[in-house]
Amino acid sequence: MPEPFQLHRDPFGRLALTDAHGVQHLGVNPIRGFPISAAEYGVSICDQEGRELVWIRRLSELPGELRNLLEHELSQREFMPVLESIDKISTNNEPCEWQVQTDRGPTAFVLKSDEDVRRLDGARAIVTDANGIAYLIADLNRLNAVSQRYLERYL
């Protein structure tokens, strides 16, 4: 079955969508419905006004090229570094500075309050820094001992 829509990238790097009626929408935004709990499920493509144009149940159901384009675009706007280890937390009291290793390289951030560390389902957890950037911990049990000890007091 041919897809009821087409996507391409214009010279400005914006996505353009041609819908089932042949209408072209410029500068559309793909947005994940469940970015944390089920990233694969549900991607919505919205126009610049924020109105949904297309709902894709699963990215994997799309043909390869379309999926690559979407996934690349999503990767450009999604930023949730995966925390791999905690090297140091500056003090016992918040706000404190965390020096960490992530899948996107080493960085440091400020944690405002102990409530910004929260446990998700299973062994996952999320740390949100003072700027609202979320760091995902994929598996608490697979962190090294030092990191686990640092996290103990939050979870």
Binding site: F12, G13, Q76, E78, F79, G132, I133, A134
Partner: peptide
């Protein structure tokens, strides 16, 4: 976007360069 942004240099035809930053 949500937690990242982009600074884009464009002329009338093309995007010439992109820089990325967090909020």
């Amino acid at each position: 976007f949500a937690t990242v942004g982009g600074l884009e240099l464009v002329d009338s035809h093309n995007r010439l360069a992109v820089w990325r930053y967090t909020t």
